[in-house]
Design a protein around this nucleic acid. Structure first.
Lengths: 160, 160
DNA sequence: TTAACTGCAAACGTTTTGCAGGCGG
DNA sequence: CCGCCTGCAAAACGTTTGCAGTTAA
Protein backbone atom coordinates (compact mmCIF):
# COMPACT_ATOMS: atom_id res chain seq x y z
CA UNK A 1 0.00 0.00 0.00
CA UNK A 2 2.67 2.50 0.91
CA UNK A 3 4.26 4.47 -1.80
CA UNK A 4 7.52 4.70 0.07
CA UNK A 5 8.58 1.21 -0.88
CA UNK A 6 10.64 2.59 -3.70
CA UNK A 7 12.39 5.90 -3.52
CA UNK A 8 10.96 8.21 -6.10
CA UNK A 9 13.03 11.13 -7.21
CA UNK A 10 10.13 13.11 -8.62
CA UNK A 11 6.39 12.86 -8.19
CA UNK A 12 4.23 11.21 -10.85
CA UNK A 13 2.96 14.64 -11.75
CA UNK A 14 6.49 15.89 -12.29
CA UNK A 15 7.40 12.80 -14.23
CA UNK A 16 4.40 13.28 -16.47
CA UNK A 17 5.22 16.90 -17.00
CA UNK A 18 8.69 15.90 -18.16
CA UNK A 19 7.23 13.30 -20.50
CA UNK A 20 4.86 15.82 -21.99
CA UNK A 21 7.74 18.19 -22.56
CA UNK A 22 9.73 15.67 -24.53
CA UNK A 23 6.70 15.12 -26.72
CA UNK A 24 5.83 18.75 -27.16
CA UNK A 25 2.58 18.21 -25.36
CA UNK A 26 0.97 20.38 -22.69
CA UNK A 27 0.01 20.07 -19.10
CA UNK A 28 -3.63 20.99 -18.80
CA UNK A 29 -6.12 21.13 -15.98
CA UNK A 30 -7.66 17.89 -17.27
CA UNK A 31 -4.37 16.03 -17.41
CA UNK A 32 -3.38 17.19 -13.96
CA UNK A 33 -6.76 16.10 -12.59
CA UNK A 34 -6.28 12.67 -14.10
CA UNK A 35 -2.78 12.17 -12.74
CA UNK A 36 -4.04 13.19 -9.33
CA UNK A 37 -6.99 10.87 -9.50
CA UNK A 38 -4.92 7.93 -10.73
CA UNK A 39 -2.23 8.35 -8.10
CA UNK A 40 -4.53 9.22 -5.23
CA UNK A 41 -4.64 5.54 -4.29
CA UNK A 42 -2.64 2.52 -5.24
CA UNK A 43 -5.57 0.52 -6.53
CA UNK A 44 -5.84 -1.41 -9.74
CA UNK A 45 -8.26 0.36 -12.02
CA UNK A 46 -10.05 0.12 -15.31
CA UNK A 47 -10.36 2.96 -17.78
CA UNK A 48 -14.13 3.01 -17.61
CA UNK A 49 -14.06 3.19 -13.83
CA UNK A 50 -11.63 6.07 -13.90
CA UNK A 51 -13.60 7.89 -16.55
CA UNK A 52 -16.64 7.62 -14.32
CA UNK A 53 -14.85 9.24 -11.43
CA UNK A 54 -13.47 11.87 -13.75
CA UNK A 55 -16.92 12.85 -14.90
CA UNK A 56 -17.46 14.40 -11.48
CA UNK A 57 -14.39 16.53 -12.10
CA UNK A 58 -15.35 17.93 -15.45
CA UNK A 59 -13.15 15.65 -17.51
CA UNK A 60 -14.69 13.89 -20.47
CA UNK A 61 -14.57 10.27 -21.48
CA UNK A 62 -12.36 10.94 -24.49
CA UNK A 63 -9.85 12.91 -22.51
CA UNK A 64 -9.84 10.15 -19.92
CA UNK A 65 -9.02 7.48 -22.48
CA UNK A 66 -6.55 9.68 -24.30
CA UNK A 67 -4.68 10.44 -21.11
CA UNK A 68 -4.60 6.88 -19.86
CA UNK A 69 -2.80 6.05 -23.07
CA UNK A 70 -0.33 8.84 -22.46
CA UNK A 71 0.25 7.72 -18.89
CA UNK A 72 1.07 4.28 -20.17
CA UNK A 73 3.45 5.65 -22.79
CA UNK A 74 5.07 7.73 -20.09
CA UNK A 75 5.67 4.61 -18.02
CA UNK A 76 3.54 5.85 -15.16
CA UNK A 77 1.03 3.03 -15.39
CA UNK A 78 0.89 -0.34 -17.08
CA UNK A 79 -1.68 -2.94 -18.03
CA UNK A 80 -1.42 -5.79 -15.59
CA UNK A 81 -4.34 -7.96 -16.55
CA UNK A 82 -7.50 -8.19 -18.49
CA UNK A 83 -10.80 -8.84 -16.79
CA UNK A 84 -14.04 -9.38 -18.63
CA UNK A 85 -12.89 -7.50 -21.63
CA UNK A 86 -11.42 -4.53 -19.99
CA UNK A 87 -7.78 -3.81 -19.39
CA UNK A 88 -6.74 -3.45 -15.79
CA UNK A 89 -4.11 -0.82 -15.07
CA UNK A 90 -1.84 -0.21 -12.15
CA UNK A 91 0.90 2.17 -11.09
CA UNK A 92 4.22 1.35 -12.65
CA UNK A 93 6.26 4.36 -11.70
CA UNK A 94 7.34 4.42 -8.09
CA UNK A 95 6.09 0.98 -7.33
CA UNK A 96 8.19 -2.15 -7.09
CA UNK A 97 8.02 -4.76 -9.83
CA UNK A 98 5.51 -7.49 -9.14
CA UNK A 99 2.98 -9.80 -10.71
CA UNK A 100 -0.47 -11.09 -9.82
CA UNK A 101 -2.46 -14.08 -8.77
CA UNK A 102 -5.90 -13.60 -10.30
CA UNK A 103 -8.93 -15.31 -8.85
CA UNK A 104 -11.15 -16.63 -11.60
CA UNK A 105 -14.15 -16.55 -9.34
CA UNK A 106 -14.11 -13.28 -7.44
CA UNK A 107 -11.62 -11.44 -9.61
CA UNK A 108 -9.31 -10.49 -6.77
CA UNK A 109 -5.78 -9.50 -7.77
CA UNK A 110 -3.11 -10.59 -5.33
CA UNK A 111 0.31 -9.07 -5.78
CA UNK A 112 3.49 -11.07 -5.40
CA UNK A 113 7.08 -10.47 -6.13
CA UNK A 114 9.49 -13.07 -7.41
CA UNK A 115 12.83 -11.55 -8.12
CA UNK A 116 14.03 -14.76 -9.76
CA UNK A 117 11.67 -14.21 -12.64
CA UNK A 118 13.44 -11.15 -13.93
CA UNK A 119 16.74 -12.96 -14.09
CA UNK A 120 15.27 -16.05 -15.68
CA UNK A 121 13.58 -14.02 -18.38
CA UNK A 122 16.70 -11.98 -18.97
CA UNK A 123 18.58 -15.19 -19.66
CA UNK A 124 15.96 -16.57 -22.00
CA UNK A 125 15.71 -13.30 -23.84
CA UNK A 126 19.45 -13.10 -24.30
CA UNK A 127 19.48 -16.61 -25.65
CA UNK A 128 17.04 -15.50 -28.38
CA UNK A 129 18.73 -12.21 -29.13
CA UNK A 130 15.60 -10.56 -27.78
CA UNK A 131 15.78 -7.18 -26.10
CA UNK A 132 13.42 -7.50 -23.16
CA UNK A 133 11.60 -4.39 -22.06
CA UNK A 134 9.09 -5.79 -19.65
CA UNK A 135 6.68 -8.56 -18.98
CA UNK A 136 3.21 -9.33 -17.78
CA UNK A 137 2.55 -12.45 -15.77
CA UNK A 138 -0.97 -13.47 -14.87
CA UNK A 139 -1.46 -16.50 -12.66
CA UNK A 140 -4.99 -17.86 -12.82
CA UNK A 141 -6.80 -19.93 -10.25
CA UNK A 142 -8.88 -19.69 -7.11
CA UNK A 143 -8.01 -17.48 -4.16
CA UNK A 144 -8.14 -19.03 -0.72
CA UNK A 145 -11.56 -17.60 0.03
CA UNK A 146 -13.02 -18.97 -3.17
CA UNK A 147 -11.51 -22.41 -3.06
CA UNK A 148 -12.91 -23.13 0.38
CA UNK A 149 -16.30 -24.82 0.23
CA UNK A 150 -19.34 -22.55 0.59
CA UNK A 151 -20.09 -22.01 4.28
CA UNK A 152 -23.76 -22.91 4.32
CA UNK A 153 -23.34 -23.12 8.07
CA UNK A 154 -21.15 -20.41 9.60
CA UNK A 155 -19.45 -22.96 11.80
CA UNK A 156 -15.79 -23.41 12.39
CA UNK A 157 -14.61 -25.43 9.46
CA UNK A 158 -11.79 -27.70 10.40
CA UNK A 159 -12.42 -29.86 7.39
CA UNK A 160 -9.79 -30.27 4.75
CA UNK B 1 5.86 -27.97 -34.99
CA UNK B 2 5.48 -31.70 -34.34
CA UNK B 3 2.57 -32.80 -32.28
CA UNK B 4 4.49 -35.76 -30.96
CA UNK B 5 6.33 -33.70 -28.39
CA UNK B 6 3.85 -34.71 -25.77
CA UNK B 7 2.13 -38.08 -25.80
CA UNK B 8 -1.52 -37.54 -26.30
CA UNK B 9 -3.84 -40.29 -25.24
CA UNK B 10 -6.73 -39.13 -27.36
CA UNK B 11 -7.01 -36.77 -30.30
CA UNK B 12 -8.25 -33.22 -29.83
CA UNK B 13 -11.43 -34.27 -31.59
CA UNK B 14 -11.95 -37.08 -29.13
CA UNK B 15 -11.14 -34.84 -26.21
CA UNK B 16 -13.66 -32.32 -27.42
CA UNK B 17 -16.29 -34.98 -27.88
CA UNK B 18 -15.77 -36.02 -24.28
CA UNK B 19 -16.05 -32.45 -23.10
CA UNK B 20 -19.27 -31.95 -25.00
CA UNK B 21 -20.67 -35.07 -23.44
CA UNK B 22 -20.03 -33.87 -19.91
CA UNK B 23 -21.86 -30.67 -20.77
CA UNK B 24 -24.73 -32.32 -22.56
CA UNK B 25 -23.72 -30.67 -25.78
CA UNK B 26 -23.55 -32.15 -29.24
CA UNK B 27 -20.92 -32.88 -31.83
CA UNK B 28 -22.04 -31.31 -35.06
CA UNK B 29 -20.58 -30.98 -38.52
CA UNK B 30 -19.69 -27.36 -37.73
CA UNK B 31 -17.89 -28.17 -34.49
CA UNK B 32 -15.97 -31.00 -36.08
CA UNK B 33 -14.92 -28.73 -38.94
CA UNK B 34 -13.65 -26.17 -36.47
CA UNK B 35 -11.64 -28.62 -34.41
CA UNK B 36 -10.08 -29.92 -37.59
CA UNK B 37 -9.28 -26.46 -38.84
CA UNK B 38 -7.82 -25.35 -35.50
CA UNK B 39 -5.64 -28.41 -35.08
CA UNK B 40 -4.57 -28.70 -38.69
CA UNK B 41 -1.50 -26.64 -37.89
CA UNK B 42 0.21 -25.52 -34.76
CA UNK B 43 0.03 -21.82 -35.49
CA UNK B 44 -1.10 -19.05 -33.21
CA UNK B 45 -4.41 -17.72 -34.46
CA UNK B 46 -7.00 -15.07 -33.92
CA UNK B 47 -10.72 -15.70 -33.88
CA UNK B 48 -11.38 -13.42 -36.83
CA UNK B 49 -8.74 -15.16 -38.90
CA UNK B 50 -10.19 -18.55 -38.11
CA UNK B 51 -13.71 -17.38 -38.83
CA UNK B 52 -12.52 -16.22 -42.23
CA UNK B 53 -11.13 -19.63 -43.07
CA UNK B 54 -14.29 -21.24 -41.76
CA UNK B 55 -16.45 -19.21 -44.07
CA UNK B 56 -15.11 -21.34 -46.92
CA UNK B 57 -16.34 -24.38 -45.10
CA UNK B 58 -19.88 -23.28 -44.51
CA UNK B 59 -19.44 -22.31 -40.88
CA UNK B 60 -20.78 -18.96 -39.77
CA UNK B 61 -19.09 -16.24 -37.79
CA UNK B 62 -21.26 -16.79 -34.72
CA UNK B 63 -20.64 -20.51 -34.65
CA UNK B 64 -16.94 -19.82 -35.03
CA UNK B 65 -16.85 -17.54 -32.03
CA UNK B 66 -19.13 -19.76 -30.00
CA UNK B 67 -16.97 -22.78 -30.63
CA UNK B 68 -13.69 -21.03 -29.91
CA UNK B 69 -15.12 -20.29 -26.51
CA UNK B 70 -16.03 -23.93 -26.03
CA UNK B 71 -12.59 -25.07 -27.13
CA UNK B 72 -11.10 -22.82 -24.52
CA UNK B 73 -13.42 -24.11 -21.83
CA UNK B 74 -12.51 -27.62 -22.88
CA UNK B 75 -8.84 -26.84 -22.37
CA UNK B 76 -7.98 -27.49 -26.00
CA UNK B 77 -6.80 -23.97 -26.69
CA UNK B 78 -5.83 -20.98 -24.60
CA UNK B 79 -5.33 -17.26 -25.01
CA UNK B 80 -1.63 -16.56 -25.06
CA UNK B 81 -1.50 -12.88 -25.85
CA UNK B 82 -3.41 -9.93 -27.10
CA UNK B 83 -2.36 -8.11 -30.24
CA UNK B 84 -4.00 -4.94 -31.47
CA UNK B 85 -7.24 -5.65 -29.79
CA UNK B 86 -7.62 -9.23 -30.68
CA UNK B 87 -6.95 -12.26 -28.52
CA UNK B 88 -4.34 -14.65 -29.83
CA UNK B 89 -5.01 -18.32 -29.25
CA UNK B 90 -2.87 -21.38 -29.35
CA UNK B 91 -3.12 -25.11 -28.80
CA UNK B 92 -3.08 -26.04 -25.17
CA UNK B 93 -3.96 -29.70 -25.31
CA UNK B 94 -1.22 -31.94 -26.55
CA UNK B 95 1.38 -29.23 -26.58
CA UNK B 96 4.06 -28.67 -23.97
CA UNK B 97 3.73 -25.76 -21.55
CA UNK B 98 5.53 -22.67 -22.73
CA UNK B 99 5.41 -18.89 -22.82
CA UNK B 100 6.25 -16.19 -25.34
CA UNK B 101 8.59 -13.41 -26.18
CA UNK B 102 6.50 -10.87 -28.04
CA UNK B 103 8.09 -8.38 -30.38
CA UNK B 104 6.50 -4.97 -29.98
CA UNK B 105 7.53 -3.99 -33.45
CA UNK B 106 6.82 -6.88 -35.77
CA UNK B 107 4.49 -8.81 -33.50
CA UNK B 108 6.39 -12.06 -33.74
CA UNK B 109 5.67 -14.60 -30.99
CA UNK B 110 8.69 -16.62 -29.93
CA UNK B 111 8.03 -19.65 -27.78
CA UNK B 112 10.23 -20.58 -24.87
CA UNK B 113 10.00 -23.02 -22.05
CA UNK B 114 11.24 -22.39 -18.55
CA UNK B 115 10.35 -25.26 -16.32
CA UNK B 116 11.48 -23.32 -13.24
CA UNK B 117 8.56 -20.97 -13.62
CA UNK B 118 5.96 -23.58 -12.87
CA UNK B 119 7.67 -24.51 -9.62
CA UNK B 120 8.23 -20.91 -8.57
CA UNK B 121 4.61 -20.05 -9.17
CA UNK B 122 3.44 -23.18 -7.37
CA UNK B 123 5.39 -22.05 -4.32
CA UNK B 124 4.08 -18.51 -4.39
CA UNK B 125 0.52 -19.73 -4.89
CA UNK B 126 0.78 -22.12 -1.96
CA UNK B 127 2.06 -19.33 0.22
CA UNK B 128 -1.10 -17.37 -0.53
CA UNK B 129 -3.49 -20.29 -0.22
CA UNK B 130 -4.15 -19.85 -3.91
CA UNK B 131 -5.10 -22.80 -6.06
CA UNK B 132 -3.18 -22.23 -9.27
CA UNK B 133 -4.75 -23.47 -12.47
CA UNK B 134 -2.57 -21.88 -15.06
CA UNK B 135 -0.74 -18.79 -16.09
CA UNK B 136 -0.02 -16.49 -18.97
CA UNK B 137 3.37 -14.89 -19.28
CA UNK B 138 4.03 -12.29 -21.96
CA UNK B 139 7.54 -10.93 -22.33
CA UNK B 140 7.62 -7.70 -24.29
CA UNK B 141 10.50 -6.22 -26.19
CA UNK B 142 12.24 -6.30 -29.54
CA UNK B 143 13.13 -9.46 -31.41
CA UNK B 144 16.64 -9.76 -32.76
CA UNK B 145 15.60 -8.75 -36.25
CA UNK B 146 13.86 -5.63 -35.03
CA UNK B 147 16.45 -4.45 -32.56
CA UNK B 148 19.15 -4.38 -35.17
CA UNK B 149 19.29 -0.97 -36.81
CA UNK B 150 17.67 -0.62 -40.23
CA UNK B 151 20.31 -1.53 -42.79
CA UNK B 152 19.91 1.45 -45.06
CA UNK B 153 23.65 1.52 -45.10
CA UNK B 154 25.32 -1.47 -43.59
CA UNK B 155 27.71 0.90 -41.84
CA UNK B 156 28.60 1.15 -38.22
CA UNK B 157 26.55 3.94 -36.65
CA UNK B 158 28.20 5.44 -33.61
CA UNK B 159 25.80 8.35 -33.38
CA UNK B 160 23.73 9.00 -30.29
C1' DT C 1 -0.24 33.53 -31.96
C1' DT C 2 -0.73 28.97 -32.96
C1' DA C 3 -0.40 24.33 -32.20
C1' DA C 4 -2.20 21.42 -29.01
C1' DC C 5 -6.30 20.38 -26.33
C1' DT C 6 -11.11 19.54 -25.16
C1' DG C 7 -16.08 17.68 -25.30
C1' DC C 8 -19.39 15.89 -28.06
C1' DA C 9 -21.40 12.56 -30.77
C1' DA C 10 -20.70 9.53 -34.09
C1' DA C 11 -17.76 5.76 -35.76
C1' DC C 12 -15.09 1.76 -34.89
C1' DG C 13 -13.79 -3.31 -34.76
C1' DT C 14 -14.52 -7.22 -32.21
C1' DT C 15 -17.54 -10.16 -30.05
C1' DT C 16 -22.21 -11.43 -28.40
C1' DT C 17 -27.07 -12.17 -28.78
C1' DG C 18 -32.24 -12.91 -30.01
C1' DC C 19 -34.60 -15.26 -32.97
C1' DA C 20 -36.81 -18.63 -36.14
C1' DG C 21 -35.93 -22.67 -38.33
C1' DG C 22 -32.88 -27.12 -38.44
C1' DC C 23 -31.11 -31.33 -36.68
C1' DG C 24 -28.49 -34.70 -33.46
C1' DG C 25 -29.20 -38.34 -30.20
C1' DC D 1 -39.37 -35.78 -30.37
C1' DC D 2 -36.94 -32.78 -27.33
C1' DG D 3 -33.55 -29.62 -26.64
C1' DC D 4 -29.48 -28.18 -28.47
C1' DC D 5 -27.55 -25.98 -32.71
C1' DT D 6 -27.26 -22.94 -36.59
C1' DG D 7 -27.10 -18.52 -39.54
C1' DC D 8 -28.58 -14.11 -39.82
C1' DA D 9 -28.82 -9.49 -38.65
C1' DA D 10 -28.82 -6.50 -35.07
C1' DA D 11 -26.95 -5.22 -30.69
C1' DA D 12 -23.45 -4.64 -27.47
C1' DC D 13 -19.10 -3.60 -25.79
C1' DG D 14 -15.00 -0.91 -24.82
C1' DT D 15 -12.50 2.31 -27.20
C1' DT D 16 -11.24 5.76 -30.83
C1' DT D 17 -11.93 9.64 -33.85
C1' DG D 18 -13.48 13.98 -36.60
C1' DC D 19 -14.76 18.21 -35.68
C1' DA D 20 -15.36 22.98 -34.11
C1' DG D 21 -14.43 25.71 -30.45
C1' DT D 22 -10.87 26.52 -26.42
C1' DT D 23 -6.49 27.17 -24.23
C1' DA D 24 -1.50 26.61 -22.84
C1' DA D 25 2.85 28.53 -23.63
Amino acid sequence: MSLEEVEVAVSPMEKFREFLLTKNLRMTRERATIVEEVFSSHEHFEAEQLVQRLAEQRVSRSTGYRTVKLLEEAGLIRKVARQDSRDVYEHDYGYPQHDHLICKKCGELIEFHLHEIGELLETVARKHGFRMEGHRLEVFGLCDKCCRPPKTRPKKLNLL
